[in-house]
Amino acid sequence: MGQSTDKVAEAVLQLVARTPESTQRLSERPAEAARKVAHEAASRAALAAGALALPPGPVGWLTILPEMMTVWRIQAQLVADVAALYGRSAELGSSQMLYCLFRYTAAQAVRDLVVRVGERFVVRPVVGSALQKLAKTVGLKLGEKLVGKSVSRWVPLIGAMGVSAYAFYDTRQVGLTAMKLFEREQVIDAEA
């Protein structure tokens, strides 16, 4: 499990290190536009995850990390698009990306990144070794999911349907998290 955790942690670090460019623009009705973008992203994530989950047995195991990375890239683009719709692209950094992407799948690991203060969210930037430690914690949590996903590879069609449904649900949650984060005024603490 240690090697797979390291690979997942490295994948998480690479994912949050670069914020995707968005083609979306500030919207007069950002919540409505964000829900539409989230639904489209969830559909793409479900299709990609389901297709990558189809190979059976040991061959299927080789598709688990690529499947997770594909879904995460779709979700990262979703977060960037939601930020753009709310006019918050300039504020989007690795801390916000990490929080939005893993708020539900690794809640314990990212819970301290964002603190709600009244109607605002306070986002604490995480850099350097702290970011690596957080990625390792997220990787450990997601490494546990790898074991669960490997079981789905033994029953390809049913497993692919389950993986697809979960990717749809998880991507919708990422979209909702990003909407909640960017619809409120955001205060970013200075790095210590």
Rank of each mutant, 00 (worst) to 15 (best):
V187T: 13
A33V: 07
E183H: 13
R172V: 05
A46R: 13
E21R: 08
Q132I: 04
L13M: 14
A51C: 12
V110H: 04
P125I: 03
A48S: 11
R184M: 07
G60T: 08
A83R: 02
R172Q: 08
Q186F: 03
V117L: 09
R153G: 03
A17C: 03
V127Q: 11
K36I: 08
A80M: 09
A107C: 08
G139C: 04
A17R: 07
S150I: 03
A9M: 05
A84I: 12
A33I: 08
L98T: 08
A83G: 04
A53R: 03
V126S: 01
F182W: 12
M1R: 01
R111P: 00
G143C: 01
A190Q: 14
L13C: 10
T177G: 05
A48T: 14
I74Y: 00
K149F: 06
F168W: 14
K149N: 09
D170L: 02
V174K: 09
R120D: 07
Q77E: 15
P20H: 07
L26E: 03
P20E: 02
A48I: 12
A34D: 09
A178S: 08
A51H: 10
I158W: 15
I64Q: 03
S95M: 06
K149P: 00
I188Y: 04
F102W: 09
A49C: 13
S43R: 13
P56R: 06
I74Q: 10
L176V: 13
L62S: 14
T105E: 14
E183P: 09
V163M: 08
V79H: 09
A178N: 05
G87V: 09
A11S: 15
T177Y: 01
R103V: 06
E119A: 13
R172N: 02
R111N: 03
R111C: 00
A33T: 04
Q75V: 07
T5H: 02
T70S: 13
V163L: 11
V114Y: 00
R18C: 01
M161I: 11
V147G: 04
A49Q: 11
L140K: 10
V71K: 08
A45L: 07
D81G: 02
M179N: 06
T137C: 05
L101F: 12
Q75G: 15
F168Y: 15
L65R: 13
L92F: 11
G50V: 10
E191N: 06
M97K: 06
Q3W: 12
Y104D: 15
G2N: 11
M69D: 11
Y99S: 06
P56C: 05
G143S: 02
K7H: 11
E191W: 04
